[in-house]
Nucleic acid binder design. Structure first.
Length: 498
RNA sequence: GGUCGGGUGGCCGAGCGGUUAGGCAGAGGUCUGCAAAACCUUGUACGGCGGUUCGAAUCCGCUCCCGACCUCCA
């Protein structure tokens, strides 16, 4: 298998990827909390991991991809300052059952994932379906002495954990002394926790809370950080290959996951931690409150002050591919406009390539070697921490070759038939299997429309050969008003939707 | 305030010690009844000031901006 390098947040270095078990990979990604419509930033994160997942599969690994759905335990604000469960709050405000809220937004989330052509994970566990596992894990942490009970709630004891030499702060780069110091400074009398750096594992709930379960400590609900630990352990074991999520989850969520796993199982959950960076809008973080925000829906329809038009989901996906997953990506109308054209060029390249066929079985020429080496580079770039922008650049260089072969600037006779086949295989593998793009132009057009268009094109051709420019231009202009564009080429006229 | 990341040509965005990134826009050209589209070719760059080096966008120091996290966040 081709060597793969990944940037590990834990070591802050690019490392050679070595699975714990030959040929198999356990991948856990923190999923969404389903209390409102999917955020566009979520879409970038899950699309990034979708591409990672797809590439691992393409390399031949058997991947168990676990991505949870958080349907309980995610609080707004902190427990001790009256933080309320996000799902529970939404249910109360909308007068719905919590599970109605969960179902509604989980459905919406799945639809959006499908619109972006993201593959579903192998397992999509929900927090509410794993209350028993979470209670078990809390008990283990208590048994190991890293948690304490206060008024029916259970808290993780960070000072004790640190005092025993455990690496709290390693993943997120926090300095332990600072965390403890900060804790002492901020400690106020009314806090239920012994220490502000402690976090809730189990939260006692009163009758107003809609989602409550019995536990050895109280009727309540689990803390947010715990679910991921419990579910990743259940489905991937206490130590697995890759844990992913957005970089904003590094602290405290992922740091606490590490602590919980160490506290319960004495093992750090993942060998490699991968973090995706944020999506910005016009250079700033998206935020609903100050209006700097675009929903996926608005992006597709163009109904937003930030956009001049709507964009196809595949254009958006292509746009995301143009940046590395660890870099912030700035969404602007100009950038999307550029991405739209680039995406079309890439797809056109695919169609052009499809129409080429090699017949040369002779020796490899310089051009031949150039193409083979570009193919190889595409794989190398992708294997270098999933560098999609670089791999994409190689593909565009191949487009130039493909167009040259089609246009006659390059000689098809110089390229071995075998190379053309390999090029076709690689090109389509990257476009569709790895990058997960879809060829929208070939979808949804019925035979009737195709037939009618061909008839119109034929009639116009007749008019043109009679030098009846009025008729020819009238056809062209009318179709143009219907957003149908005619393209007069050397080999006849083709059409497409604008 | 603390921690971390970043400032690359008109825009987006790779690269991170010597090589053309790539896409879009611009310019020139091919094709064409005209136009559009498509295709080909092509210019422009590394926030500022110092330093290390034969050589720096890439390393070091200072400085100025920007962003993220530190509290729910993908």
């Amino acid at each position: 298998m081709r060597p793969l390098y990944v940037y590990n947040s834990l070591s802050r270095q690019r490392e050679l990827f070595e699975p714990l078990e030959e040929g198999h990979i356990g991948l856990y990604v923190c999923g969404p909390t389903v209390y409102s419509d999917v955020h566009l930033g979520n879409c970038r994160t899950f699309t990034s991991f979708d591409i990672i997942y797809r590439y691992l599969l393409h390399l031949g690994y058997k991947v168990r991809y676990v991505r949870n759905i958080t349907d309980v335990g995610h609080l707004e604000g902190d427990v001790d300052v009256g933080g309320e469960d996000k799902i529970s709050k939404k249910a109360r405000l909308d007068k719905l059952e919590p599970m109605e809220v969960v179902q509604k937004y989980a459905n919406g989330f799945h639809e959006m994932m499908s619109v972006f052509n993201n593959k579903p994970p192998s397992i999509e566990p929900r927090a509410t379906g794993h209350i028993i596992e979470q209670i078990d894990m809390i008990q283990k942490i208590l048994d190991n002495g890293y948690a304490y009970i206060k008024n029916g709630s259970v808290y993780f004891d960070t000072p004790k954990f640190i005092a025993d030499g455990n690496p709290y702060g390693k993943l997120s780069g926090r300095v332990v002394e600072d965390l403890l110091q900060e804790s002492r400074d901020n400690l106020k009398g009314q806090d239920e926790k012994n220490n502000p750096s402690d976090f809730a594992l189990w939260i006692q709930a009163d009758e107003r809370h809609l989602m409550r379960w019995p536990s050895p400590w109280s009727v309540g609900f689990p803390g947010w950080h715990l679910e991921c630990s419990a579910m990743s352990t259940k489905y991937l074991g206490p130590h697995f290959d890759i844990h992913g999520g957005g970089t904003d989850l590094k602290f405290p969520h992922h740091e606490n996951e590490c602590a919980q796993n160490l506290g319960a199982c004495k093992e750090s959950p993942a060998k490699y931690w991968l973090h995706t960076n944020m999506l910005l809008l016009n250079g700033k973080k998206m935020s609903k409150s100050d209006g700097n925000s675009v929903t996926p829906g608005q992006l597709f329809t163009g109904e937003s002050d930030h956009l001049t038009k709507g964009y196809d989901p595949m254009v958006v996906r292509f746009f995301m591919l143009q940046a590395h997953y660890r870099s912030t990506l700035d969404l602007t109308d100009d950038a999307l406009l550029a991405a739209e054209k680039g995406y079309r060029r890439l797809m056109e390249g695919y169609h052009t390539l499809d129409s080429l066929s090699g017949s040369n079985t002779g020796n490899a020429s310089a051009l031949d070697q150039e193409i083979v080496s570009l193919i190889e580079s595409t794989y190398e770039d992708m294997s270098d921490d999933f560098n999609t922008p670089k791999a994409l650049a190689r593909l565009f260089e191949l487009v130039t070759k493909i167009n040259g072969l089609k246009g006659g600037q390059l000689k098809l006779a110089d390229v071995q038939a075998e190379t053309i086949d390999k090029l076709k295989e690689t090109y389509s593998a990257f476009l569709f299997d790895i990058f997960g793009l879809k060829d929208e132009s070939s979808e949804g057009d019925s035979n009737v429309v195709d037939g009618l268009m061909q008839l119109i094109i034929d009639l116009r051709k007749e008019a043109r050969s009679n030098k009846d420019w009025n008729t020819a231009d009238k056809i062209r202009d009318t179709l143009s008003e219907l957003s149908l564009q005619l393209k007069d080429g050397k080999d006849g006229t083709t059409w497409s939707k604008i």
